[in-house]
Simulated assay, not measured.
Amino acid sequence: MSTRAAVPATGHEPIVTDSRVVAHFGLAAGQTPENIALEGDGSADLTFALARQVAHVTPDGKTRILATLPSVAQPDTPLLHSAAVTGIVRTHDGTLYVNYATGTQETGIWRIPGDGGTPVQIAELPPRGLPNGLALDERNGVLYAADSVQGIVWRVPTSGGTATAWAQGTELQPLSASGYGVNGIKVHRDAVWVSNTDRGSLLRFPVGPDRSAGSVQTRATGLDGIDDFAFPGNGSSVLAALNRSSEIVLVRRDGTHTVVLTPDDGLSNPTSVAVRGRTLYLPSAAFVTRQDPNLVLARLRYLFGRL
C-alpha cells in the first residue's frame, strides 16, 4: 500500500490529500473495476467489467466476489466485442443493480441480492447499444442507464419491465462510430446529470413534474476523456474521472476545473468516483495503461455546499 499527498494545482493547499492504493486487482483475470457503489460501513461494491463479476471490497482492501454474470456463447458488444458488466447502484436495503453489455438479448439491467447470489435480468436493452453508467432514483423507483453507443438515456422501473428512451440527442451521442458518447450518470437535486466522453462535456437534464426530461443544460466542457463522476456535497460542484489522462478533476459550478489527483497518486485510467463523507473512492481499470487496476482512497479537505 502506498500513501501520497496530492500536489495543489494553484499553489494553495490541496483540495484532496492522503491518496493511497488500498486494493490491487488482477488484470489477467479481467478484474478491471468499472463502477462503484458504497455500503453503509464504508466498504465498496465494484463491477469487474471484463471478468463479468461484482466484487465487495472492504476499506482495508479485502476482496470477495458477490456474483458473476452469466457467460454468453458469442458476445458481440459494440466497441468491446466481449461481455462486460458496467454501471452499478445500491438501494437502501442492499439490493444491487448492474448494467450488463453483451451484444445479445442478455444486454440490459440485472438485479443481485445485497449479500450476493444469482443475478436476474429485470429489463432488456438494445443489443446494439452499450449500457454504461447507471443511476438510481430510489424515491421514485427508477433506474437510468446511459447508452454510450446509441446516445440514449434509458429509464427502467426498479421493479423491472420495458425500458423507455428518456433522453436523447446530439449532445449524448459519440463523435464517431468508434467513440463513447454519454457515459457517467447521476441523479442529483431533481435532475439527471451525465457526461459525454467523446465531447468532454458535463450535462444536466432537469426532471419535470411528469418525470420527463427537461431541456439539456451544458455545465462544463473541455473535460477530455471524462468517465463517471460524483458530487462532493449538496451543491453543483463535481469530482470527475478523466480516464485518458488518469486524473481526477474538480469541476466547479461555473464550469472551470482543477486537477486534484494524477497518476502519481496511484490512478491508472480511473473510471468512476464515489464519495462518503470526506472519503473519496476511485477505481482504476487500467484499460489503456495495462498496469495496476486498483482502488484508491483519498481524503477531501472539505465538503462543498450549495454552490
Score class of each variant (00 low, 15 high):
R4N: 06
P8A: 12
T10N: 14
G11M: 10
P14N: 10
D18L: 09
V22Y: 01
A23M: 10
L27N: 10
Q31P: 01
Q31V: 02
P33M: 12
P33T: 03
E34M: 06
D41V: 08
D45C: 14
T58D: 05
R64Y: 04
L79V: 14
L80V: 12
L80T: 05
L80W: 02
V85A: 03
I88N: 07
V89A: 08
T91Q: 15
G94R: 06
N99P: 04
Q105G: 05
E106V: 00
E106H: 12
E106G: 00
G108N: 02
I109N: 09
R111P: 00
G114W: 04
T118I: 14
P119E: 01
I122Q: 04
G129T: 11
G133D: 08
Y144P: 00
A145N: 10
S148I: 13
Q150D: 13
W154R: 01
R155Y: 04
A163I: 02
T164K: 12
E171D: 15
S178E: 06
G179K: 03
Y180P: 05
H188R: 11
R189C: 03
R189I: 04
D190T: 07
D190A: 12
V194N: 04
S195Y: 07
F205N: 05
G208F: 00
G208A: 15
P209A: 15
A213F: 11
S215V: 14
Q217C: 08
A220P: 04
L223A: 07
L223E: 04
D224E: 13
D224T: 13
G225Q: 09
R244M: 09
V249L: 12
R252L: 13
R252T: 13
T256P: 08
V259G: 09
V260H: 01
S268Q: 14
T279F: 03
V288H: 09
R290L: 15
Q291T: 14
L297V: 15
L297E: 11
R299D: 04
L303T: 14
L307I: 12
